[in-house]
């Protein structure tokens, strides 16, 4: 039962990366393309962004109901980067909506746009930093140590920052791939194909940076990948996907690019799950919080599972209808 809940948690997190990530990436992409993408991004995101962000709320709820020590430990040790993520979420969500609904006027729109863009960047970066902190294992539960050791060191390090950079590029790349599919104008397609290629190169570079900084911080990430067969398979598949992405980007095969980009991202996320499993949060004294040690009592898990399964049965058809109406239906509104 615990495994089933963990799998659902993983699916929610993956969907948040794929859907919510593209939404964060939209802001970053606007920043990279100096606003050239803003019309397309806004059209693509507006009807779905709020629904996409509910995945994060589900992740949080599953954690505090099903694995309460994970929730409390992470939010205590990584209080600062999480707070920065939250401030970013408030600012980008509000600015995006204000830009969409406020009356047409140059100056306010420009302000909303830059808040949306920069806060998308900052939010994604610190989300990556937070994930880095969870992976690295520098979280300390010895509260007699100083402020720096407990509240700064777990996330203020090269590895976590590399994770931040990696996530920024990954999300921008996803958004870029989705954006190409949203436009029919030759000029835009060219521009985003070019940006897509740069981002793909940057993605490989920052991926390498993540592995390198892990070694520097004394965390054998590559070794862990190498010694877990599922992670290794994911790693290989994600690597194999790279040339295909490049080729299909060049050929402007937008559907294939979308599918492969989503596949590659899924492999990265699933590969990460596989090396973590069954550890949920690494602690510096080796007393890692595992799936079993953090799990809530059986009857709680059962109720959570029922709520999640019923929830999924209700949500997915609705979600499908939302996407069918706005994403695969090219009637102009």
């Amino acid at each position: 039962m615990t495994e089933t809940i963990i799998i659902i948690l993983g699916i929610c997190l993956l969907l948040y990366v794929l859907l919510g990530g593209a939404d964060f990436g939209g802001g970053i992409l606007e920043l990279i393309s100096r606003g050239k993408a803003s019309g397309i991004v806004a059209r693509a995101i507006a009807p779905v962004w709020e629904a996409n962000h509910v995945w994060l709320i589900l992740v949080v709820v599953i954690l505090f109901v099903g694995f309460p020590t994970v929730y409390s430990t992470v939010l205590t040790a990584l209080h600062i980067p999480v707070l920065l993520v939250l401030l970013g979420i408030i600012m980008r969500g509000s600015a995006f909506t204000f830009r969409h609904y406020d009356i047409e006027e140059e100056r306010p729109k420009a302000i909303y746009s830059s808040i949306f863009r920069y806060s998308s960047l900052i939010t994604t970066f610190f989300l990556g930093v937070t994930i880095g902190g969870i992976i690295l294992g520098e979280i300390s539960q010895d509260y007699s140590k100083g402020f720096f050791t407990i509240y700064m060191h777990p996330w203020l390090n090269l590895f976590s920052f590399s994770m931040g950079v990696f996530l920024v590029i990954l999300f921008a790349f996803l958004a870029n791939i989705y954006t190409i599919g949203e436009t029919r104008e030759e000029e835009h397609i060219k521009r985003f194909t070019r940006i897509g290629k740069y981002l793909l190169i940057a993605l490989v570079g920052s991926g390498a940076l993540v592995f390198a900084t892990a070694e520097i911080e004394g965390h054998p990430l590559f070794y862990e990948f190498y010694h877990s067969i599922p992670s290794m398979i994911c790693f290989i598949l994600a690597t194999i996907a790279l040339p295909f992405l490049w080729i299909y980007l060049n050929q402007n095969r937008r559907t294939r690019v979308r599918i492969i980009a989503a596949f590659q991202t899924s492999m990265i996320v699933i590969g990460w799950f596989a090396i973590q499993f069954p550890v949920l949060v690494k602690i510096n004294d080796g007393t890692d919080i595992t799936m079993q040690s953090a799990a809530a009592p059986k009857q709680v898990q059962l109720q959570l599972l029922i709520a999640l399964i019923v929830g999924v049965l209700i949500i997915f058809p609705y979600m499908g209808y939302l996407y069918k109406t706005f994403k695969f239906d090219n009637k102009t509104s």
């Binding site: 709320i57 709820v61 929830g311 609705y318």
Partner: peptide, 10 residues
């Protein structure tokens, strides 16, 4: 809260 997740999603 877990039911609220579903309701809010809808």
């Amino acid at each position: 809260f877990s039911w609220e997740g579903t309701a809010f999603f809808v």
